[in-house]
Write a protein that binds this DNA or RNA. Structure first.
Lengths: 171, 171
DNA sequence: TGATTTTTTATGATTGAGTCATATATTCGT
DNA sequence: ACGAATATATGACTCAATCATAAAAAATCA
């Protein structure tokens, strides 16, 4: 069963188009970088994570993450706090403004994915969901990988139904 | 018919995961930037396009594109030629090495999309194809948009069957 | 307990992709 | 033929991110 080159080519184009659309929409929120937008949502979902954890989710060097947080702190989006049980670690927390901006990033991403979904027939929407679930399970390769994949998600939404990425990560 | 937030959230995660996977795999080819990789494939598909056309496909400023081509020329991947009918315009053509690297970029992207496809059941693969076709049509907003969406595709593959993006662009 | 290794944050120096402002040459429209 | 539009190019600069390195706290283990 050799893979259908035509279909895989389209999957690539689909990814290019969708990723570009999401990036563009998120850029419209007006944050200093896409990394900042991603960090904002990541922190929203996991408050009080250390810079080191953030570093892995964002796939940056540690100094890169430190500088990203510096900038976001300057912009009044996050605050540094000393971790109570490990005085080396710095935990990062959103300010009210940061929380506000994080919601805007989530809305921006959702706007694009909703637009794509709306272009499909009801039946296509129905069959697509389990396909996405299956693909996400296959793409997940452990805890760190799961955090990276879900880094721009509204995690509250997946909680009740169960996130396939989290399930697969806990294998 | 309010959209299913759970499904759109997963579509976002799917895009994040797939786009990151593709970027990472393409980075493994060892070119100086993702832009260079994209330019390489774009030029492969449309040889002798001008820098100005490239600029639009890659979504760069003109000077950005000029500098990208400078670098790629230094790396021996492309050659500048004066356009025969417009002496202002510079057309860009791949060297043998450039062609070689472009194929590697295509293979890198295909490897990731094939892996995802392979994780699906035969039936899921069958129903996914027309869904992708429909979504791509919806995501295409004209000629320039089509070029951007297909910028990392192996365009030869879509020719026989017909690329939904091109069809939609020619509306 | 005390010494060594590991983990975590931070900073100075640098890189490199990309932008902005501007210059120059060619083509097009009238 | 002249003015507007189009195309390439370059100098100065920005900014995200890296590399190399330092220092402090925690964990390990002898």
């Amino acid at each position: 069963m050799s893979t259908d080159t035509y279909a895989t080519n389209m999957l690539g184009a689909f990814t290019t188009a969708l990723a570009a659309g999401i990036d563009e929409e998120i850029s419209g929120v007006g944050l200093r970088s896409l990394s900042a937008a991603t960090a904002l949502v990541t922190i929203r979902n996991h408050s009080d994570d250390s810079i080191e954890v953030l570093r892995r989710v964002l796939n940056l060097t540690h100094s890169g993450a430190v500088r990203l947080i510096n900038g976001m702190e300057e912009d009044g989006l996050v605050e540094r706090h000393r971790s109570p049980h490990d005085t080396r670690a710095v935990t990062v927390r959103l300010t009210a403004e940061g929380r506000n901006q994080a919601e805007q990033v989530l809305r921006a991403r959702a706007a694009v994915t909703e637009r794509v979904f709306a272009a499909l027939t009801d039946e296509q929407q129905t069959v697509l969901t389990p396909i996405l679930k299956m693909a996400l399970q296959a793409l997940t390769e452990g805890r760190d990988s799961a955090r990276r994949i879900c880094r721009l998600c509204d995690e509250g939404v997946c909680r009740p139904t169960g996130c396939p990425v989290e399930l697969s990560a806990a294998e």
